[in-house]
Design a protein around this nucleic acid. Structure first.
Length: 268
DNA sequence: ATGGTTGCCAAGCAA
């Protein structure tokens, strides 16, 4: 039985609802996890999702900033909206979904970007990012007979050398500094998570999911980073059937600076 | 080394 899940930092769900509708029509993932919805819950475009076949919606939004949403074609059950660092930010939501006789716990994360200065002593936003990742260590890949976990989202960290256009030039740039990449990799391994994108496409092949708005020509310069991730518990990683980074979506009209990533599974 | 763009919402701030 096939099952697919997508993650996409949409950078305003209301502004880009036409792009979301196009993506859902063309790819029809069972579950879509959005970040940076920038939308209070009472203004979330649930009707448009319903019309697109995504009747089940779990949202944690706030006005203007952040916000995550998990939408699905099959029933989902909210497990938790976890507050990290006691900041009041909407950066996490977890749901349960049934697929192929399994119960899957799906975490949807939006990790703080961290500002420009990679020094926690002088940049509170970077301090917040490091604290957030440290607190994420508590989120482990729970698994059992008939029970699995998936973690997706914009983690705002490109952990491997091959996750950025230039490892050397980005070593001191927020998103690729050693304190961040070691923090995230430590959290992933410690939590027993499998990086499905790198299981599917190991180094040295480059993978990017984000290209800055500031480039004159994002496609030509191709100075991307892998900031968006899909992880699973070990008992689901063997079922991975496909993984796609929808690079073309960066070229759509008025795009997000992130593109969707889709993982598909073959469940028995 | 610097500045480059976008979205929030109507001035900067965050990314």
């Amino acid at each position: 039985m096939p099952f697919s899940i997508a993650t996409w930092n949409i950078n305003s769900v209301r502004l880009r609802m036409p792009l979301v509708e196009r993506f859902l029509a063309e790819h029809q993932p069972d579950v879509l996890c959005l970040q940076e919805t920038k939308c209070p819950d009472d203004l979330f475009p649930s009707a448009a999702f319903r019309k697109a076949g995504y009747e089940h919606v779990a949202i944690s939004g706030q006005k203007g900033y952040h916000g995550v949403a998990t939408v699905a074609r099959r029933p989902i059950e909210i497990v938790e909206k976890r507050e990290f660092c006691k900041m009041g930010d909407c950066r996490h939501i977890s749901v349960h979904v049934e697929a192929g006789g399994r119960r899957i716990l799906v975490h949807n994360f939006y990790v703080p970007a961290g500002g420009d200065e990679p020094d926690p002593a002088i940049n509170p936003k970077f301090r917040h990012k490091l604290d957030f990742v440290a607190e994420m260590h508590e989120v482990r890949a729970l698994q059992d007979d008939g029970y699995s976990s998936i973690l997706v989202g914009d983690l705002n960290i490109a952990p491997l050398e091959e996750d950025v256009w230039s490892h050397k030039q980005l070593l001191n740039v927020v998103s690729h500094t050693p304190v961040e990449t070691e923090g995230l990799e430590g959290m992933r391994r410690g939590g027993n998570w499998v990086d499905l994108m790198r299981q599917h496409t190991p180094p040295p092949e480059k993978i990017y999911t984000w290209w800055s708005y500031r480039a004159r020509d994002w496609e030509l310069s191709d100075r991307g980073r892998r900031l968006d991730h899909i992880w699973s518990s070990p008992n689901l990683s063997g079922n991975l059937a496909g993984l796609e980074v929808l690079r073309a979506a960066r070229g759509w009209d008025r795009p997000s600076d992130h593109v969707p990533v889709i993982a598909s599974f073959d469940l028995d």
